[in-house]
């Protein structure tokens, strides 16, 4: 395994007010690589989606910890890991289907994973019911 050039770890309680903090902190870290405006906005959006999923679906109305680890490598690859210890996802491939949502309020679009996979180069989602979710996203900057 190649060694990362730099690493950032961030642990945050699953409060919705931390959604903007999480994406801004990751963006500030990735800014060390002088990304394009489009790259930085893609990364912010993907982080926001993953963190919101942990808050809304993983921990629902309880507060838990969201773990964020960001690394970048010499070849300008950025790897972002976002983990929670919430309720997990029973059927990952169903959850990743565009427009699918378990929310019944009509205010969630069901596009979170579609945004993450479109705006990043690679998206892996690991989860089991009751065992939290681990998301690994990779983007190679120009």
């Amino acid at each position: 395994m190649k060694r990362s050039e730099n690493t950032m770890k961030l642990y945050l309680p699953s409060l919705s007010v931390n959604e903007s903090l999480a994406r801004s902190a990751v963006a500030a870290f990735v800014a060390q690589l002088n990304p394009t405006i489009e790259e930085i906005s893609d990364i912010k959006c993907a982080v926001s989606e993953a963190v919101t999923n942990s808050i809304v679906h993983g921990y629902k109305f309880a507060t838990g910890i969201i773990y964020i680890c960001v690394k970048y490598y010499r070849d300008r690859t950025v790897v972002i890991e976002i983990k929670d210890k919430g309720c997990g996802i029973e059927d990952v491939s169903l959850a990743m289907t565009p427009l699918f949502t378990t929310d019944t309020s009509g205010e969630r679009s069901g596009m979170g994973f579609a945004v993450m996979s479109t705006f990043m180069d690679k998206l892996d989602v690991y989860s089991k019911r009751g065992n939290g979710v681990r998301i690994l996203m990779t983007k190679k900057l120009a």
């Binding site: 969630r108 679009s109 945004v115």
Partner: peptide, 16 residues
């Protein structure tokens, strides 16, 4: 300046 899929939900909800 920033919008994620929550904004899509917001727009679709107002559309409905």
């Amino acid at each position: 300046e920033f919008m994620d899929s929550s904004g899509l939900g917001l727009i679709l909800g107002r559309y409905n």
